[in-house]
Simulated assay, not measured.
Amino acid sequence: MVATGLVLGVVLGFVFQRGRFCVTGAFRDVWLSRSTRWLTAFGLAIAVQAVLVQSLLAAGLIKASVPHIAWLGVIGGSFLFGIGIVLAGGCATGTYYRSGEGLIGSWIALIFYALFASVMKYGALKPFNDAVLSQKSDLTTVQGSLGISVWFLVALLVGVVAWALVRQRNRHVAVLAPTSHRTGLAKLLFDRPWSPNATAVVVGVLAAAAYPLSNATGRNSGLGITTPSANIVQFLTTGDPASLDWGVFFVLGLIPGSYIAAKLAGEFRLRAPDARTAVRAVIGGTAMGVGAALAGGCTIGNSLVQTALFSYQGWVAFVFTLLGVGVGARFFITTHRRAGAQPVLLTRDDDLVGAR
Results as ranks from 00 to 15, higher is better:
200 A>D: 05
129 N>P: 02
102 G>V: 06
64 A>G: 07
163 W>L: 11
230 A>I: 12
198 A>W: 13
327 V>S: 05
16 F>W: 11
42 F>G: 05
46 I>P: 07
280 R>Y: 11
57 L>Q: 14
132 V>M: 12
354 G>Q: 12
26 A>I: 00
78 S>M: 10
198 A>F: 14
335 T>E: 12
187 K>H: 15
194 W>S: 05
224 G>P: 04
9 G>Y: 05
306 Q>P: 01
7 V>L: 15
273 P>D: 10
343 P>I: 10
284 G>R: 03
66 V>C: 04
162 A>C: 06
103 L>Y: 09
246 W>S: 01
324 G>P: 04
187 K>S: 14
301 G>K: 07
194 W>A: 09
120 M>I: 03
78 S>K: 08
3 A>P: 01
20 R>Y: 08
31 W>R: 00
269 R>S: 14
147 G>Q: 04
82 G>A: 06
195 S>N: 15
176 L>H: 07
44 L>R: 11
36 T>S: 11
329 A>E: 03
56 L>P: 13
16 F>Y: 14
113 Y>E: 02
39 L>D: 00
94 G>I: 08
289 G>A: 07
90 G>W: 02
289 G>C: 02
239 G>K: 03
300 I>F: 04
151 W>H: 11
7 V>H: 06
230 A>M: 08
313 Q>F: 04
249 F>Y: 15
199 T>C: 12
92 A>K: 01
256 P>E: 12
100 G>V: 08
326 G>D: 06
229 S>G: 12
321 T>M: 14
67 P>S: 09
222 G>R: 10
91 C>G: 02
136 K>N: 10
331 F>N: 09
207 A>E: 03
341 A>F: 07
117 A>L: 05
210 A>T: 09
243 S>F: 15
49 Q>F: 04
54 Q>Y: 06
330 R>S: 13
238 T>S: 15
156 L>M: 13
251 V>A: 05
275 A>I: 08
273 P>A: 03
353 V>Y: 11
158 V>Q: 08
22 C>A: 14
25 G>W: 02
142 V>N: 01
96 Y>K: 02
333 I>Y: 02
107 W>E: 09
44 L>V: 10
187 K>T: 01
274 D>P: 06
